[in-house]
Amino acid sequence: GPNNVSMGELDRIAQNIIKSHLETCQYTTEELQQLAWQTHSYEEVKMFQGKPRDVLWQQCAIQITHAIQYVVEFAKRISGFMELCQNDQILLLKSGCLEVVLVRMCRAFNPLNNTVLFEGKYGGMQMFKALGCDDLVSAVFDFAKSLCALQLTEEEIALFSAAVLISTDRPWLMEPRKVQKLQEKIYFALQHIMQKNHMDEDALAKLISRIPTLSALCTLHTEELQAFQQLHPETVNVLFPPLYKELFN
């Protein structure tokens, strides 16, 4: 294997990450397939559109927070993550958890009709109109569509999620070398699996090229939250989940 990592070790890393991913996904692949064509009716979409802005924001903050709790559990099960110092565990999760949620979201996205699973059924972008941040919503939908186009397997989604999370690009890491070693192994494992699964030699490069978009989406989310908070400070302070505030405020 590359850089003195044996194939056996890469395989062990891959198996651990895939298992961690499957154990901590909110929905199984089968559940998602069953739901894929259950879409919100016109009336249901109208109902979302008619909600006050702060109510829909709160609803989305709750959903995101719920998804993040699963990502924390995913991180904890990755071999090596809990061996990092506590500062770095918190830092990686704080800066990467929303990115992983967005990667995972492509599992619950139907690219054939551009709908996403929200509140039990699939619905299009118009469902989020009342949030008042069309740019962010359409950028998130574009991202999901572009990731779906790569036709990743569940194993590749798992390894890519881990690679996004365990990243040396985060500032203020106390043990960047330790993080780097873990990240390199994850990338080798991802590369190995993608070479096996994809005819397209550039598949991995295409996947990696989505990372800057992920980080731009998270920046945009923070900006939209700040703008919303200026108008509805009491909604954020009183009604938003404490974990959401801790991570993004």
């Binding site: 709790q69 904890k76 506590q86 565990q89 801790e246």
Partner: peptide, 16 residues
């Protein structure tokens, strides 16, 4: 650490 009380707590909880 105080700033990330909940995250800290989630990391401490044993994996079920």
């Amino acid at each position: 650490k105080e700033k990330h009380k909940i995250l800290h707590q989630l990391l401490q909880n044993s994996t079920s």
